[in-house]
């Protein structure tokens, strides 16, 4: 069995080969401190051209959410059969990142709830799982 980890886009994460906890790769402007995701070369605020690749925080709070109840048209590639999935923006302090959520019940989601970064299978190509990032509610300490 192959141990190669395949990401939907390796540029999304700092170390796409890492098997353990991942970090998202953002872009930070050294001039105006604006943070964007994923990495981009130009600053959307000041037009600077020297964006630095930075690891984004792996925990944050839920800024907005919804549930995708119907199967999107291509280019969507999901795991068959289709199951509704959560989508939300997670506030990581300097930037809100849009992400799949591991929860698809709106009653189990609320604005401001603590979230943590995880990895999920976006789709399966042949028999190879293709990974993407998602956020999950933080477990409450027992």
């Amino acid at each position: 069995m192959s141990t190669t980890i395949r990401w939907v886009d390796p540029a999304l994460v700092i170390d796409p080969a890492a098997g353990g906890p991942v970090e998202l790769a953002g872009a930070r402007c050294p001039v105006c401190a604006t943070t964007a995701f994923p990495f981009q070369g130009g600053c959307p605020r000041c037009g600077g051209e020297a964006m630095e690749r930075v690891a984004l925080p792996t925990t944050g709070s839920l800024w907005s959410y919804t549930v995708q109840n119907f199967e999107p048209k291509p280019p969507y590639r999901g795991v068959e059969p289709f199951e509704p999935y959560g989508v939300g923006y997670v506030d990581l302090g300097d930037v809100c990142v849009e992400s799949r959520l591991t929860v698809n019940d709106p009653a189990a989601l609320s604005l401001g709830m603590a979230m943590r970064l995880v990895t999920i299978t976006a789709f399966v190509d042949g028999d190879e799982p293709v990974l993407t990032f998602a956020f999950a509610p933080q477990e409450v300490a027992a």
């Binding site: 994923p38 907005s64 919804t66 291509p74 280019p75 969507y76 993407t132």
Partner: peptide, 28 residues
Amino acid sequence: PSSLGIGDWYGETGMMVTTQFFAQKIGR
């Protein structure tokens, strides 16, 4: 996604859907 300068991953993972935006904006 590429027509807007966004990577293919955004569509493949199911976030290139206009209705999600409106739902999240009005939810907040």
